[in-house]
């Protein structure tokens, strides 16, 4: 996937696979929004056509992101690329679980 330079505002998206054993339950969701909230960009998570805010814990929990499922993370704003990188790292590290 090609990302635009991060200095200016951009709308980017990236697919990420949930790899921790228990999936997106409350603790990973809390970590997710903690990371997402650090960025100015609007963050949206999409799965099976449903989009929720990446800064809303209740929204995130309704997506039923079990281990092995893939979500699309959208970031729109001046720090979209950094946001996606930070989120991807968290997801790849299995939310520091397992």
């Amino acid at each position: 996937m090609k990302d635009k330079p991060s200095a200016q505002s951009a709308a980017l998206s990236r697919d990420m696979k949930i790899e921790n054993k228990h999936g997106m339950h409350a603790r990973p969701a809390a970590l997710f929004i903690k990371v997402a909230s650090k960025f100015e960009s609007d963050i949206l998570i999409e799965k099976d056509g449903t989009k929720v805010s990446g800064k809303s814990i209740m929204g995130l929990l309704t997506l039923e992101l079990y281990a092995g499922s893939v979500m699309k993370v959208h970031a729109d704003g001046s720090d979209a690329e950094e946001a996606l990188n930070a989120i991807e790292e968290l997801v790849r590290n299995k939310f520091n679980e397992d």
């Binding site: 228990h22 999936g23 997106m24 339950h25 409350a26 603790r27 929990l61 039923e64 992101l65 079990y66 281990a67 092995g68 499922s69």
Partner: peptide, 17 residues
Amino acid sequence: AAKELDEKLVRALERKR
């Protein structure tokens, strides 16, 4: 409440998986 919802979620996600 927080713990119970989390347990419910973990069970549901496990079923889905």
